[in-house]
Each structure stands twice: as structure tokens, then as C-alpha cells.
Design a protein around this nucleic acid. Structure first.
Length: 571
RNA sequence: CGGGGCGUGGCGCAGUUUGGAAGCGCACCUGCUUUGGGAGCAGGGGGUCGGAGGUUCAAAUCCUCUCGCCCCGACCA
């Protein structure tokens, strides 16, 4: 490709709307443009990378027996009602009507469509397992799109579905998918963690996420050098010990002392000796009090799992009405018959804690769990900085990450309500055991940029770079320079290399800056060295360069090219 | 949905407090010079100041409504 003919609108300045590294660079390098909030066009350079990622995905999916299909985005709402997800999805799902007034949804995911095909066609265990996948746009009306292509409302996803006869077969297919995912992300040059995760709206019996570490990520994971890694939504850990002091039962006047920090200081007790009491209201309208150590934070995800339905924090007025005290002075004592009390499992039985007295400006001290009365114990706290690994006892690391893939064992969550059954060897009808496996294609690009970009721009892994080599003739009006550049360009194309020749009539500084910005892994500068018979070969990421004789330029480039691929091809 | 910020040529911004001729830098077009890290000089084109309504002799500027974008939180496969 000749740059003078290409559409690569690079930006010198940082657009004000972009804050995170990948977003800024994708705009500046001319990969994407925004149409409206959370909806982007991929321009030629960005789309070339997307296509390369898709090639890798297809190869690895096909290698484990996947068969590519293509499903529609327009889906009848009736289909979603069959599994109850029309309600579960809520406002995430874009809803539309056709001219007759029939309700449709733009598919946010495709389990129901797959299950519909399966129930229509799959009859016998002999037809199982099936592995179907597609690469298609998903539509989700996110409450807050953000961070460029990291959280968007319309995005390209590879989604695969396995249909199995039993749980063992499902487990086998799930493992194959996991291995394929590892190969895909390895080949894309990414660093990632595989973590235990919450299944959320997808449901099912288990799931794992593939997470790229990045400051711009929205998910926090807990990791340990022993290899343990879990999403904070579900992560477990060994809490630090509280050095509590003995205390007598007492009611203490604590005027205007509302926060854990204030009360801890006022009473002279460590934060961990306070009992943090948080009032929540369940979706069905029941009040629940969550009690944790003062130095711990509640995990709403875990609380929801413990309660079994969605919860929200109580409004201040509700808290006053239910407990008789304003927020800041709540506690579990004497509330056991009014509401459900869930005490975090990290709270020690014998510890004499201080907590709200359910009366304005008063706290109580010296009480312990035995004084609460009826309550339930559950793990409802978020893993905290300093917690120890449940596997090996070492200190956990909390790292922000981008979710690039998620694999689920769905079991019969969809096949049962939708009646997708098959006949087993005995001739009895059984629901199909399903799995679902997603990859965010755009997030792979963003993840790679987040991981490897430097102060000059993007540093693509060669496998997913829009161009593998950029040739920069320093002065296009110099015939000797141009003829050398063109000769190398044509030879590399013949060798199957993706090459961009920057034949623009621009000053060298402009071309160098743009070359660094768009991140081609290899640059060949053709300039003043030509009169001495050399060109410069540059490794973008390593920032190493060497002068090579013109006649060896293609060979040397191919050596570097091979080496960059080799680094990514094997585990 | 709660809180905050911002909408002025393609991009980045000033001007809004205190109403009085729409500006600057980059980019773009033409010419000359220059050619190894975002060139210099000269000339030139381009903006109903997000939109609607109002106040006023006069509105980018004041008032009301509205649309959009970004950030934090809630939410999120």
C-alpha cells in the first residue's frame, strides 16, 4: 500500500474526548472514529487489524472442530421471553418494533437463537457434540459507554456455542475452548490472566474470564504469584487479623461521628473492631443488613449471591424508617426480627465490636455476634489490599484488567426452558448441555495497545499489525532514494509481507512521527545512507536499529519478520 | 439514574465574568525556499459560536428549555 493513496487520518493533537491510552492512540493513529457515544467506525487501518485478529480466531476455532455460522441481529422478543431474559436484560437490550407493531430486540448475545436452531434440528446423541461459532455485532444499550472501544454499545464479538450430550462432554468441549482461547491470545501477543468469574446474566454452572492487565480496565482481579487468580466479584482471600482490645458493654455518646474512620478515632478502637452495618433493599422490597469488619468493604456482587436476588443500598429516609436512626448510626442489635442480618464470615465470633446504636449520635461497644440474635454468616466482603492467598498464603495483588474473553458452562439453563432436547442411547429425552464462549474482537486491539504502546505511539504485535513493515523514503524527490525504496517494497510484497510505503511529500520528521504512531513493528528508512549503499532497519518495539547494505535489506527484514512471528507463535 | 465538566472553522483552544466588528495555533490550498524527528516566508479559503425560544437598539456572551459529548459513581456478558 502506498501511503499517498491510503486513508490514514492521523492526529497530531489529543482529542479532548479521549482519556484512556488505547482510545487516544486509536483516534490519533486513524484506526477509528466515533459516530456517537459508544458507537465507532473502524477505518482502514483499524479494520485491517480487526481482520487479522478474526483470521487468528477462525483458525483456532476451526482447529477444535468449530463450524462458522452467521446469525441475525434482529430477533423476535418472544424468543427472549421463553428464557425470561427479556426481563433479566432490562434496558441493556435495544427494543424495536416492525411496521406491524411486533416487538423485536437487537441481539445482545445469541444463546436463545442458538438454542432455537438446536431444538429444531438436533434429535440424537449421535449428532453431539456440535461446536458452532460466529463473528458478529452485538448490541447493548450500556448505561455508560466509555473508554473508547472498551465499553461500547455496538461491537464485534466472536461467540461460540457447544452443544453436548452430558456434563463430561461439556467439560471436554469447555476445556478445548479454553485451550483455543489461550492460543488465540498468545498468538495476538497479549499478556493475560485466566480468572474464576461470576456468570452474571449468562447463568450456568461456572465461568472463567481472560483478562489483560491495564490501568484502563474496569474489572479488578486478585492474583497471586502461585498462579491463583480470581475476579474480585467472586474472589476469596484470607483476611488480615484484627488486634482487638477488650471492651465492656456500653452505650457511648458519639455526636456527629458517622464514618468508620471518625468512630474508630473517637473510640480509640482499630477500624477492624468496628462492625460496619449497611442497609440494603432487595428487589422484592425486603430490607437486609450486611455487617462487616470496619476495615472491609462490601462486595455487592457477593451480597446479591448470598441474598439470591438483586439488591440496592437503602435510601437515607428508608434507613431512618426501618432502624430509627440515620445512616452512620446503624447496627444489627435488636433488629433480628425486623430484617435479615447477614454477617461477613471474616468477623470473628469472640471479638467485642463497636457499632451503631440505632439512635442518633450513639454507638455501642463491647457487643459480640452472640448478642445479635438470629443472623446468617456468608462471605460478602470484597478482597482487600493486603489480604492473603487462600491457596498458598502469600500476599495477593489487586490488578485492574480488561475482559477480552469469557467462557461459560451454561448447562441446561437455555435448553430446558426452550425444550432443546435429544434422545440418548436409552431413547430418553434429555436437555442439551450447552456452553457459550465469547471474545471481544475490538478489545483485543485495545488491550494490545494498552499493553505495548510507548510515548511515541502504538507498538503492534506483528501478528495483528495493520502493516508489518513501513518503508520511509526520507525524500521522495530524490530519485536514488525512491528507486531503492520501491525495489525493497516490491520484493517484500512478493515475499508475502504486508508493507506500507510512505511516499508522501512530507518532511522526514512528519513521516517518522506517523510511522511510530501507527506502530508498524518494522521500519525501513531509506535516506542519506543510500549514497553509501545502506538503509536503516528498525525494530519499533525494541527501539533497535542497524544499517544494512541495500542488497541485503530484504533478507534482513525477513529475518526480523520471522523472528517477531516466532516470538508469538508458540507457547 | 445521581454528581461534575464541556459544546466557538477539520483538530486543539481564547473570547462568556462586565452584551458592542468572531479570533489564535495546527491542518488545508497556491508560490518560492527547505529535506534524517511534527520546516520558513508570502498569499489564500473555510465558522448561522450545538439547537429552539426569550430579554435587548444590539447576544458566542444574559434568561428559559432542549440536544449531544466526556469524566466519577450506580450498572455492566
Amino acid at each position: 500500500m502506498l501511503w499517498s493513496k491510503a486513508f490514514i487520518p492521523t492526529l497530531k493533537e489529543v482529542p479532548t474526548d479521549a482519556q484512556v491510552k488505547s482510545h487516544i492512540l486509536m483516534l490519533r493513529a486513524g484506526l477509528i472514529r466515533q459516530l456517537c457515544a459508544g458507537i465507532y467506525t473502524f477505518l482502514p487501518l483499524g479494520w485491517r487489524s480487526m481482520l487479522r485478529v478474526m483470521d487468528i480466531i477462525r483458525e483456532e476455532m476451526d482447529a477444535i472442530g468449530g463450524q462458522e455460522i452467521f446469525m441475525p441481529s434482529t430477533t423476535p422478543l418472544e424468543l427472549w421471553a421463553e428464557t425470561g431474559r427479556d426481563a433479566d436484560m432490562g434496558e441493556i437490550m435495544y427494543r424495536i418494533e416492525d411496521r406491524k407493531g411486533t416487538a423485536f430486540a437487537l441481539a445482545p448475545t445469541h444463546e436463545e437463537v442458538i438454542t432455537d436452531i438446536a431444538r429444531g434440528e438436533i434429535r440424537s446423541y449421535k449428532e453431539l457434540p456440535q461446536v458452532w461459532y460466529q463473528i458478529q455485532n452485538k448490541f447493548r444499550d450500556e448505561p455508560r459507554p466509555r473508554s473508547g472501544v472498551l465499553r461500547v454499545r455496538e461491537f464485534l464479538m466472536k461467540d461460540a456455542y457447544t452443544l453436548c450430550a452430558d456434563e463430561e462432554q461439556l467439560h471436554e468441549e469447555y476445556k478445548k475452548q479454553e485451550m483455543a482461547y489461550r492460543r488465540i491470545f498468545d498468538r495476538c501477543g497479549l499478556q493475560y490472566f485466566v480468572v474464576g468469574a461470576s456468570s452474571g446474566l449468562m447463568g450456568g454452572t461456572g465461568s472463567e474470564e481472560f483478562m489483560v492487565p491495564s490501568e484502563s480496565g474496569e474489572d479488578i482481579i486478585a492474583t497471586c504469584e502461585c498462579g491463583f487468580a480470581q475476579n474480585l466479584e467472586v474472589a476469596k482471600s484470607v483476611p488480615t487479623k484484627v488486634r482487638w482490645k477488650d471492651a465492656d458493654k456500653a452505650k457511648v455518646h458519639t455526636p456527629e461521628q458517622r464514618t468508620i474512620e471518625q468512630v474508630s478515632e473517637f473510640l480509640g478502637l482499630p477500624e477492624g473492631q468496628l462492625l460496619k452495618s449497611l442497609l440494603y433493599i432487595t428487589q422484592s422490597g425486603k430490607p437486609v443488613m450486611a455487617c462487616l469488619r470496619g476495615d472491609h468493604d462490601l462486595s455487592e456482587d457477593k451480597l446479591q449471591s448470598a441474598v439470591g436476588e438483586a439488591v440496592r443500598p437503602a435510601e437515607p429516609e428508608e434507613a431512618l424508617k426501618i432502624t430509627g436512626a440515620p445512616i452512620g448510626f446503624l447496627g444489627p442489635i435488636s433488629l433480628a426480627d425486623k430484617l435479615e442480618i447477614i454477617v461477613d464470615s471474616a468477623v470473628e465470633d469472640e471479638m467485642p465490636f463497636a457499632t451503631g446504636a440505632n439512635e442518633v449520635d450513639y454507638h455501642i461497644t463491647g457487643y459480640s455476634l452472640a448478642d445479635i440474635g438470629k443472623h446468617r454468616r456468608a462471605d460478602i466482603r470484597a478482597v482487600a489490599e493486603g489480604d492473603l492467598c487462600i491457596a498458598c498464603g502469600k500476599k495477593l495483588d489487586l490488578v485492574p484488567t480488561i475482559e477480552i474473553g469469557h467462557i461459560f458452562k451454561l448447562g441446561t439453563k437455555y435448553s430446558k426452558p426452550m425444550g432443546a432436547t435429544f434422545l440418548d442411547e436409552e431413547g430418553t429425552a434429555k436437555p442439551i448441555q450447552m456452553g457459550s464462549y465469547g471474545i471481544g474482537v475490538g478489545r483485543i486491539l485495545a488491550g494490545a495497545i494498552e499493553l505495548f504502546a510507548d510515548e511515541d505511539g502504538i507498538c503492534w504485535p506483528i501478528t495483528i499489525a495493520p502493516f508489518e513493515v513501513i518503508i520511509t523514503p526520507v525524500n521522495v524527490s530524490d530519485e536514488a532514494v525512491m528507486s531503492v525504496a520501491m525495489a525493497i517494497y516490491e520484493e517484500l510484497i512478493d515475499e508475502g509481507v504486508e508493507v506500507l510505503l510512505d511516499d508522501r511529500e512530507a518532511r522526514p520528521g512528519v513521516k517518522f512521527k506517523d510511522a511510530d504512531l501507527i506502530g508498524a513493528p518494522i521500519r525501513i528508512t531509506v535516506g542519506k545512507g543510500v549514497k553509501d549503499g545502506v538503509v536503516e532497519l528498525i525494530d519499533r518495539k525494541a527501539k533497535e536499529s542497524e544499517n544494512v547494505p541495500i542488497e541485503d535489506a530484504v533478507e534482513k527484514t525477513l529475518e526480523l519478520w520471522d523472528r517477531l512471528f516466532a516470538e508469538l507463535s508458540d507457547l
